[in-house]
Amino acid sequence: MSQQESLYEKLGGEAAVNAAVDIFYRKVLSDDRISSFFEGVNMETQAAKQKSFLTMAFGGPHNYSGLDMRRGHAHLVERGLNDSHVDAVIEDLGATLRELGVKEELIAQVAAIAESTRNDVLNR
């Protein structure tokens, strides 16, 4: 038997991230619950960071440690980032994948990866 395909491979790898990034970022920017966290920053840099986020959530290769997640979101926690915002991000992520026709079973796995970073992102 050949090696088992990883979640990232099942989703379609980097091409899947590229297909998802515009849709996801558009959802985030039009989501009143969280859009304020993404306002006023350079859109190109933001899009690049969304890609890092998606790659990580898709189980792809990345170098972020839990500490990086803490540091990277600390300024947002100061501005009131809480559980409801993480819920919103995970919801938008699911909606993005559904729009791309990804199976529910894989969507649940992606959500679980994002979920596993919750405490780091919220710095607790």
Partner: peptide
């Protein structure tokens, strides 16, 4: 316009 274009469906 950059934001509006993106929201109106243009790819980044």
């Amino acid at each position: 316009a950059k934001r509006n274009a993106f929201m109106a469906g243009a790819s980044m």
